[in-house]
Amino acid sequence: MSRRPRVKLDKPISYYHVMTRTVQQEFYLGDDYVPGFKQVMLDVFREAASVFYVNILAWVIMDNHYHLCLEVKKPPRDPEDLRRRFERLQEINVNKRRWQPELAHACYKRFTDVSEFMKTVNFRTATAFNRARETRGHLWGARFNSKIIGDEMGLLKVMCYIEHNPVKAGLCRKSSAYPWCSAGHLKHQLDRGKAIDFPPINFLKYMPRKRRARNYLQLVDELAGKLHSGPSNPEPCVPSYDLPITDAELEEWRKEFAFKAPEDWSNQAFGSEAFQRQIALQEKAKTQKVSKVRGEAVKRRRCDPDDQGL
């Protein structure tokens, strides 16, 4: 059976939720196998994002999988910027290549492709794991999962869903207390007094730039208490602002998170029903196109005497 075609949007900015699990969901990413490997993975994420036209909006690294929320850009083609990104790639590559102007088209196509980004991340992390363990073989199991995010509210939901992974796993009561997610990383930076240019997503765009990251943390932690704490043991939380989500919306989030809607990989879209239908139609059209091309290739082979050993 042929693998499912990946649907991608040809837009200036697209948002994706991607996830990859280890082979047989073993806890290879924990310190029992390679101490400090989560930091190695985070470094790989950052290196890849510095080469590709990708911003990592939210991330979490668990012991047997990781999630990323990605902003993938397709800006106007700039040969000089492509050259700099290519040279940055060569700095972290083993096999060095020199920049040539005729590489611009291929580089632009690669650096704006979410699949190429994930291929780079998974290859580099697997290589680092095997080098540290002095082993060979696969680190990651099946092909990475991907969902296209349809709107800013969906984007905010996915980011919170990603941040809440350690809370749901019982590792902490607040996402900001877990060091290997973007919320925990943000808290660490804010505690050290670092300025953070957090993206203007949803209600955050109406807030001063200096307050966005801190208010995002408050939102994530408060939602963790409201969505994942049992009714008999609610998470105490004293927000410094009103939660910008109504009770009805909160109940909708609770249902979606309980049924893992942001992680329902049977559908390649997360958003409104209309958006999901749109992506489903694109997937169907792409599947039909691939099937047609493969069918024509089979016919050509059958009609070619050389392919039949005649």
Rank of each mutant, 00 (worst) to 15 (best):
D304I: 05
D63G: 09
C303E: 13
F111H: 02
L204K: 06
K226H: 10
L281Y: 07
P5E: 01
E102Y: 01
P5K: 07
C303R: 14
M1F: 14
H185W: 12
V114G: 04
V94A: 13
A297I: 11
H164C: 05
L310E: 14
K157M: 13
V298A: 13
P231H: 04
K38V: 03
E222L: 03
F45C: 05
G150Q: 02
I201R: 01
S14F: 08
L219N: 01
E263Q: 14
P35L: 09
S50N: 14
K289H: 11
F203M: 04
V293W: 09
V23Q: 02
R88E: 11
S176D: 04
K157G: 03
I196C: 05
P236K: 13
Y15D: 01
G295V: 09
L217S: 01
C303G: 13
Q268L: 12
E71W: 05
A177D: 15
A104H: 04
M159Y: 03
S175Q: 02
P305M: 03
E134A: 11
F37E: 00
S176Q: 04
P79M: 13
V220C: 09
H228Q: 07
Q25A: 10
G193K: 13
K8C: 07
D242K: 14
L57W: 00
T20M: 02
L68W: 00
Y66F: 15
H65G: 07
D247R: 14
E222R: 06
I245E: 00
A132T: 06
H185K: 12
E26W: 11
I196Y: 02
M207H: 10
H138K: 14
N145V: 06
L103D: 00
A280N: 08
A224N: 07
W253L: 15
N55L: 06
S229R: 05
A128T: 00
P75R: 08
C107R: 06
K109F: 09
G271N: 09
R294I: 10
R88A: 04
E296C: 11
M207W: 15
L171A: 09
T287P: 04
I56V: 09
A169C: 11
V51F: 05
P244K: 10
H105M: 01
S182Q: 04
G309T: 06
Q278L: 11
S115F: 00
P262Y: 01
D247Y: 08
R21V: 13
L223C: 02
L171F: 06
